[in-house]
């Protein structure tokens, strides 16, 4: 039932999210539109209340500007009829907060707390200041002979559910793919697991979104999302080797 409520609210805000965020960054993963819709929902809620607050604010400044011979009212703010100007917005904020919390947790749960069945797993090794991606190769299994090892270039196939195993060799890094709306810190000594499912094809930025030292500003990579045919061709060409970068 929760999922149903979630889907219903999401469907209201999805077009706005597409307009706000989707127009700036392509919607590239199965959960990107969830995040965009959540952002739209928050934008509508705070936009509405913020606008109301501004209207009240500027109206009061204009209405009660200093006029000759007119004194200010003596009001303590504890009068019942005045207090409701505070207590009603107060209640409205609580209601909005509850909706935002519900939607935020549903989105979060879907992306970060559950791990759907994977079609393939990639290992992402971060280090000062480069990305090393280990693809499972044609057999679909990591740590076998046909693994494909690349620097600063991640090849994935559209429509497949990927798990990632994110590790760091030195300091904190953050695997960030804006078109996926995905971020995850890499922590030395730990394997961070997560998932994504690309829904479009093309070549996009991978960022390191955690300060990682002098070269943080050059620690970018590209993600190449391919059709099944392209991906199969790339894999058979490069299986078992350290593939050289094809872009950049």
């Amino acid at each position: 039932m929760l999922q149903g409520i979630y889907e219903f609210i999401k469907s209201i805000f999805a077009p706005i999210g597409d307009f706000f965020i989707g127009s700036l960054v392509p919607v590239g993963s199965s959960f990107a539109s969830d995040i965009d819709s959540l952002i739209a929902l928050v934008a509508v809620f705070v936009g509405f209340w913020g606008l109301l607050a501004y209207i009240a604010f500027f109206f009061l400044i204009f209405r009660f500007r200093r006029k000759d011979g007119q004194r200010a009212k003596y009001v303590t703010g504890e009068e019942k009829d005045l207090k409701r100007w505070i207590s009603w917005p107060h209640a409205a904020i609580i209601v909005c907060d509850v909706v935002i919390v519900f939607m935020a947790i549903m989105v979060w749960y879907n992306i970060k707390q559950r791990l759907p069945e994977a079609d393939a797993t990639v290992r992402i090794v971060s280090q000062q200041w480069a990305w090393n991606f280990i693809h499972p190769g044609p057999d679909g299994v990591l740590d076998t002979e046909d693994d494909i090892n690349t620097f600063n270039e991640l090849h994935v196939q559209e429509g497949m559910v990927y798990h990632y195993e994110l590790v760091s060799k030195d300091v904190l890094h953050d695997f960030s793919v804006p078109v996926f709306r995905l971020k995850q810190d890499a922590i030395p000594g730990r394997v961070m697991k997560g998932w994504f499912k690309p829904t479009i094809t093309g070549t996009y930025d991978v960022q390191c979104a955690e300060m990682c030292g002098v070269g943080h500003g050059i620690m970018g990579a590209r993600i190449i999302i391919e059709t099944p045919e392209e991906h199969a061709a790339w894999m058979s060409q490069n299986k078992g080797q350290l593939a050289s970068a094809t872009t950049r």
Partner: peptide, 23 residues
Amino acid sequence: LIISIPIAEMLFLYIATLYGGSI
């Protein structure tokens, strides 16, 4: 999100202080 409530309320009270003033 809970902390947004008292902070928002504080701002409302400031805005309400303007009511009836001689600004």
